[in-house]
Amino acid sequence: MTEPPSVLPLQIMLILLLIKSGSSNNECGEWSCGSGQPPIRFPFKLIKGIKDECGYPGFCLYCTKKNETMLALSSVKLQVSYINYENHEIGLKDPENCLPHKFLQINDSLIHPYKFDDEAKTSKLSFFNCSSVEHQHLRNYEQSLSDSQDMISCPIYVSDLDDSVLSLDLTSCTKMFDIVTPVSAYGMQRNSLDLRWSEANCSQCKAKGKKCKWKNNRGDIECFDCKDKRKTIHVPKSFIYSAPG
């Protein structure tokens, strides 16, 4: 009599899959999307995908198939470069390397609950449409770097208001407008955007030896205890078989 094939590897894979899918809801631990990625803990929460329920919008992160850590600000998706929990800073970049275009979709209401890194300092910036240039890079220093913005796929260029159009090779570009903002042209040229968040008041929870988590999407906080908190994995009986001896 032919014995049924072993399904033990299938059981193991199923259990590992369930653990992985459930781990994003466990707020006792510290998580990350992979090696070299920033650690994720309160006030942030790791969710399975951009459409998943988020306890407090703005603080939910998700992982891509490439193990990149992503943050969604309204409809703008930005990659997380670093998180500094002590200084309440988060560093972002555009995975498509077109930050000037993404920046135009962000305003004060869309970046809530964040603020720009240094709102006390302002820069006067000029935005240019360089779609008529028709080559990959402009002839200036920033555009000569290996990771510089591709002007064909992303023809929106930003500079300081006082920069020379001639020295930046922008004579074939059309100026769109000027703005005053706490973000520097250099940061956007280097695909870097730094934001800050206000510290959540966890003092009462810490005094009780407990941790904080978001209670609702209005920013209210509740305490919870991580001691003796274990995750139970339920495997349907229909998936459990006896391996042949």
Results as ranks from 00 to 15, higher is better:
124 K>N: 10
83 I>W: 04
156 I>D: 01
12 I>M: 09
64 T>E: 12
127 F>V: 00
239 F>H: 13
126 S>P: 00
169 D>E: 01
67 N>K: 15
138 L>I: 02
150 D>P: 09
111 I>H: 01
143 Q>Y: 05
115 K>P: 01
145 L>R: 13
235 V>C: 06
161 L>M: 08
38 P>K: 03
27 E>S: 12
157 Y>H: 07
166 L>I: 14
7 V>E: 15
215 K>L: 12
89 E>C: 09
224 F>G: 10
191 N>Q: 08
106 I>F: 10
165 V>C: 03
71 L>E: 00
22 G>Y: 04
199 E>N: 10
241 Y>L: 09
140 N>A: 04
96 E>C: 08
62 Y>H: 15
42 F>G: 00
59 F>W: 08
227 K>D: 13
228 D>F: 11
56 Y>W: 10
240 I>R: 05
129 N>P: 00
183 V>C: 08
223 C>Y: 11
53 E>K: 11
109 S>D: 10
165 V>W: 02
106 I>T: 06
162 D>R: 06
202 C>K: 07
137 H>W: 09
43 P>N: 02
176 M>P: 00
145 L>S: 07
215 K>C: 01
174 T>M: 09
27 E>Q: 14
121 K>F: 07
77 K>E: 12
21 S>H: 10
222 E>L: 13
108 D>C: 09
39 P>T: 01
243 A>M: 09
130 C>W: 00
82 Y>A: 13
122 T>D: 06
3 E>T: 14
14 L>R: 09
156 I>K: 08
158 V>H: 00
143 Q>K: 03
120 A>N: 11
115 K>A: 05
153 S>P: 02
17 L>Q: 14
210 K>C: 07
16 L>P: 01
151 M>H: 15
122 T>C: 05
4 P>T: 04
202 C>F: 05
206 K>F: 14
97 N>F: 02
142 E>Q: 13
188 M>N: 03
86 E>D: 12
37 Q>L: 06
189 Q>F: 03
40 I>T: 01
80 V>N: 02
235 V>M: 06
43 P>E: 04
74 S>V: 02
157 Y>K: 05
157 Y>N: 01
185 A>E: 08
3 E>R: 12
100 P>M: 00
21 S>P: 02
204 Q>H: 15
1 M>P: 09
84 N>S: 13
106 I>R: 05
192 S>M: 12
111 I>Q: 05
28 C>G: 15
163 D>Y: 06
204 Q>P: 07
72 A>K: 11
67 N>H: 15
193 L>F: 06
120 A>Q: 10
109 S>G: 02
223 C>H: 12
113 P>Y: 01
114 Y>V: 01
173 C>N: 00
17 L>V: 06
184 S>C: 03
170 L>S: 00
